[in-house]
Simulated assay, not measured.
Amino acid sequence: MKKNFILYILLVFLIVVNGFFIYNHMCDSTDRKPKKPQQPTNFIVKELKFSKEQLAQYKESNQNHKETMMRLSADIKNLKDVLFNKLSDVSVDEEAVDSITSLLGQKEKEKRISVFYHFKEIQKICDAKQKEKFAQIINDALHNKGKKDEGIDALEASDGKRKPPPKK
């Protein structure tokens, strides 16, 4: 009788615990949604504490940069499609492959130049104290380049899918 009693208690405990986990897992609760990662734009604005005027300038600059980056990314995607469609060709035209890869390199170069000048625009918006903080953010981002979802690529991402560099 004592063995059965222990088994019944264990069985009731397992049923209650399973019910609890099923309820928590299956219930549609809006306040349990995972928080979205902070977008790099929000990170920069928050860290530099932009005024309303600075924020307006920043948003305009950021929108222009975003459009440029989207255009360049689309160009790169199209060029890659053209390049890899050549895989099915019976003979390889090395000049065409070389030309396409050169164009790809040029588009990547344009992206990096655009990022550089975007950061220069942000720096122009800043006052002296903000410029020091911005330089620190950029420096931290450059030194965290090797880490996943960190570094300068996280700052230049406009889609919000990457995280800003961690604070030290």
Rank of each mutant, 00 (worst) to 15 (best):
K77D: 11
P166M: 15
I138Y: 10
D149G: 10
I6N: 01
N64H: 03
K35F: 04
Q57M: 14
D149H: 14
E132V: 15
L14W: 04
L83K: 08
L104Y: 02
I152A: 04
N4Y: 10
N4M: 13
P37I: 14
E60N: 10
E94L: 07
K3R: 12
L83F: 09
N78H: 02
K59F: 07
A154I: 11
N62S: 12
D31Y: 13
C126R: 09
E47P: 00
Y117M: 13
A128R: 13
S61P: 03
F43Q: 00
K2G: 02
N42Q: 13
L104V: 09
L7T: 01
N85P: 01
M1V: 09
F116H: 14
K147W: 12
D159C: 06
I15P: 01
E53K: 14
L104S: 02
H65Y: 15
S73D: 12
Y58I: 10
E94S: 03
N42C: 00
D159R: 05
A128F: 07
L79I: 08
M69R: 05
Y117R: 15
V115R: 03
D140P: 03
M69T: 01
K2F: 12
G151S: 11
C27K: 11
G19C: 02
D75R: 08
C27E: 15
I22N: 09
D75F: 06
F84C: 04
L103S: 12
D159L: 08
N85K: 13
Q63N: 05
K111A: 01
D127G: 09
K148S: 10
T41R: 13
F5I: 14
T68L: 06
N62V: 02
Y58T: 06
T101R: 02
N18W: 10
A56P: 09
Q38I: 15
I76K: 01
L7K: 04
A141C: 11
I138D: 10
K167D: 13
K163C: 04
L72T: 08
H25W: 15
